[in-house]
């Protein structure tokens, strides 16, 4: 059975470690696949959320809606934290 995970499409060990740490901290499952776009990763995710490098930054994409990144950031741990919280339906912890 495929776990209800967010998909990270990346191969850089440091980036994978940072994103995975954020997911572990939030208690949200993450699966890692070979590099691709965040949208492609989102389409593979049972939760409809994908994360991938995006130029010099990292992007979160959703499997539905416009084909543009939902969130872009330069810190993989922070981007992972946001993606995990979106999946877990927790506030992002950013003062609105």
């Amino acid at each position: 059975m495929t776990p209800p995970a967010v998909i990270l499409a990346a191969d850089d060990p440091a980036a994978i470690r940072a994103v995975a740490a954020a997911f572990e901290e939030e208690g949200v499952p993450l699966s890692v696949v070979p590099p691709n776009t965040a949208r492609a990763a989102a389409l593979l995710s049972p939760l409809g959320i994908g994360v991938a490098p995006h130029g010099d930054e990292f992007a979160i994409a959703l499997s539905t809606g416009p084909d543009v990144p939902y969130v872009v950031g330069d810190d993989p741990r922070q981007v992972g934290h946001i993606a995990a919280r979106i999946a877990a339906r927790r506030p992002l912890g950013v003062a609105p």
Partner: peptide, 12 residues
């Protein structure tokens, strides 16, 4: 929603 809500609104 037809389009996603802004990220800073999620879970708020």
């Amino acid at each position: 929603l037809p389009h996603p809500a802004p990220p800073h609104t999620v879970a708020h």
